[in-house]
Amino acid sequence: MARAHLSTAAVIAAAAELADRDGFDTLSLSALARGFGVQTASLYSHIRDRPALLELIHQLALAELADRIALAIGGRSGRDALAALADAHRDYARRYPGRWTALQRPATEGTVRSEPAARVADLTLAMLRGYALPEAELVHATRLLAATINGFLALEANGSIAHRAPAVDTSWQRALDVLDSAFRSWPEGDS
């Protein structure tokens, strides 16, 4: 990449691609600078440091995931919306493993308060509201949903659930069926 194309957006995009190719945890500013054909110091006018770069990749991944979820769940409700949301996560994890890893890291306060994080949360809550869950129970339902999706995808990514029949895709559908059933019969709670 030529130096003339150096911008904050280009640096973040290149870092995300590098994370997908080589792994999120191995991402370094020096490797990123090499890709641009510049010295590492040239990146500092666009990115403060490595932690800031990782935070920006996290926010990029949230924005991309929110776009995918919005397209997937539009016009759907119940199990169809649940499956669309979960499949959007699964497809994203498979296509962008480095960015998916960013999403699995603790979010900084800036990321938690970011517009992309709010969009993912709003879309998830909108899908869950289709189940007529009590408002006081939405946080609990969101946590169950996130734990199920992220846990399944982590096990799938490391290959630990692919060693026996039936196919992993069948187990994925069963997990969605169980979530759908849980959301349809959610117990009243004390908050």
Rank of each mutant, 00 (worst) to 15 (best):
130 G>A: 05
74 G>P: 00
28 S>N: 08
10 A>D: 00
25 D>P: 03
43 L>K: 03
2 A>S: 15
106 P>Y: 13
126 A>N: 07
181 S>R: 14
81 A>D: 10
151 G>D: 08
45 S>N: 12
43 L>W: 06
147 A>I: 05
1 M>N: 07
133 L>A: 08
53 L>Q: 00
78 G>R: 01
94 R>A: 15
69 I>P: 01
3 R>M: 11
157 A>V: 05
28 S>T: 15
80 D>C: 06
7 S>F: 01
129 R>V: 08
185 S>F: 15
84 A>S: 08
117 A>L: 01
65 L>N: 07
152 F>Y: 11
118 A>F: 02
85 L>R: 04
119 R>H: 12
81 A>I: 02
17 E>Y: 05
90 R>H: 07
46 H>R: 08
144 L>T: 10
71 L>N: 11
58 H>G: 11
121 A>Y: 04
178 V>G: 07
34 R>T: 15
143 R>F: 10
20 D>H: 02
118 A>D: 13
99 R>D: 10
171 S>A: 14
147 A>T: 14
36 F>Q: 12
79 R>S: 09
81 A>Q: 08
26 T>M: 12
16 A>P: 03
114 S>V: 10
7 S>P: 01
132 A>S: 11
22 D>P: 04
1 M>I: 12
160 S>N: 13
18 L>E: 06
41 A>W: 05
160 S>T: 14
150 N>G: 15
149 I>M: 04
140 H>C: 12
89 H>Q: 13
41 A>N: 11
110 G>Q: 06
55 E>Q: 09
46 H>Q: 07
158 N>R: 14
185 S>K: 12
81 A>V: 01
126 A>H: 01
33 A>K: 11
116 P>N: 05
183 F>W: 02
127 M>S: 06
4 A>H: 07
72 A>Q: 05
43 L>R: 07
56 L>T: 04
120 V>C: 01
191 S>W: 02
92 Y>S: 14
12 I>P: 00
101 T>E: 15
48 R>N: 12
176 L>N: 03
17 E>C: 06
37 G>N: 02
133 L>F: 03
13 A>D: 14
53 L>P: 00
135 E>D: 15
122 D>L: 01
57 I>T: 00
191 S>Y: 04
148 T>Q: 02
176 L>P: 01
41 A>E: 14
50 R>D: 12
43 L>A: 10
85 L>F: 00
68 R>A: 14
30 S>C: 09
91 D>Y: 03
91 D>E: 13
75 G>T: 03
170 T>K: 12
86 A>P: 04
191 S>I: 03
29 L>D: 06
34 R>N: 13
47 I>V: 13
102 A>M: 02
139 V>F: 04
5 H>P: 00
153 L>M: 11
129 R>H: 11
53 L>M: 02
167 A>Q: 15
